[in-house]
């Protein structure tokens, strides 16, 4: 590991000053579960490292203005233990539970996972299903964008963050009793496993227990998690009942075939995705009390 200067500010304002000042060669560290590997392997050689783990003001989970706000410094362990999350945002709870190992969950933060935007990361697939918005801040000001827009590579980043910007929070529309959400992941072992394949969904039902709106995302089948308008369209209007939903599973296979037809992993992914998607559907039905 190359020597670097290390900053550990206690306020966002200070952090943004430092980012702005050293933006040519600075790396941001929160839990360090991604960055330390890059530093050790020489993938990143910054002159400065900015530790944001002391920014207590970015460690929060709250509901206001019809949105759920998750501060960038919230660890996965915090998410996992949060009652609001486990009660009303089951897909986020599941994602936190699948993520890494207890040690990694204690260190890894939501902000870090979102900015790393790894193909095999857990949170992007889930946040995309939740229609999340990211809040970015710099000395120049604050901006917001949908996670879909955010998850587009820009230079050295796998997302749209600028060199002097800090991710402040992720926010998603507040849950209500008509929403049900689910996330299923396949990793190569039960813990400490990156995503081989994942899918998430957010369903909104109408009074007749039919699907009014659907957001379906697929993880680890392209550079970034993708939505499937085809599956969403097929789901809308369907009765919330397994027999009616099951034919849609075939569309998942078609989507995988279209996305990664020539990859060796397609052999598994085109088949396994139906199992994961069916698991999501079962979770949704269970949340609605329909099984």
């Amino acid at each position: 590991m190359r020597a670097f200067n290390f900053f550990s500010p206690e306020t966002v304002e200070e952090a943004l000053d430092l980012l702005s000042q050293h933006q040519d060669s600075i790396a941001v560290i929160a839990g360090g579960t991604d960055l330390i590997i890059d530093l050790n392997e020489g993938g990143k050689k910054p002159d400065y490292v900015l530790d944001i783990s002391q920014l207590k003001e970015l460690d929060y989970i709250s509901e206001s203005d019809g949105m759920l706000h998750i501060g960038a410094n919230t660890t996965f362990a915090t998410l996992e233990k949060n009652e609001l999350i486990s009660e009303y945002y089951p897909a986020i709870a599941k994602m936190a539970d699948y993520m890494g190992s207890p040690q990694i969950r204690e260190l890894g933060t939501v902000g870090g996972n979102v900015v790393s935007a790894s193909v095999a990361g857990d949170s992007p697939t889930v946040f995309l299903a939740y229609d999340a918005t990211v809040v970015l801040q710099s000395k120049r000001g604050t901006r917001e964008m949908s996670i879909e827009e955010f998850n587009v590579n820009r230079g050295k980043f796998r997302c749209q963050i600028e060199d002097d910007e800090l991710l402040i929070e992720v926010k998603i529309p507040q849950a209500n009793s008509n929403f049900a959400t689910a996330y299923r992941k396949f990793g190569k072992r039960k813990s400490l496993a990156i995503v081989v394949l994942a899918t998430a969904m957010r369903i909104e039902r109408d009074r007749d227990n039919r699907i009014k709106d659907a957001r379906v995302t697929l993880g680890a089948v392209s550079l970034h998690p993708m939505r499937s308008p085809k599956i969403e369209k097929a789901l809308i209007g369907k009765k919330l009942d397994m027999e009616e939903l099951e034919p849609v599973l075939q569309l998942y296979t078609e989507e995988i075939d279209a996305a990664i037809a020539s990859r060796p992993s397609v052999v598994y992914k085109r088949e396994g995705i139906r199992g994961l998607a069916k698991g999501c559907m079962m979770d949704v039905l269970e949340q609605y009390g329909l099984v």
């Binding site: 190992s101 190569k188 072992r189 039960k190 813990s191 400490l192 496993a193 990156i194």
Partner: peptide, 12 residues
């Protein structure tokens, strides 16, 4: 590495 040479962990 242990991250990609997969051996069973405690949960397995």
């Amino acid at each position: 590495n242990f991250s990609d040479y997969i051996i069973p962990a405690a949960m397995d």
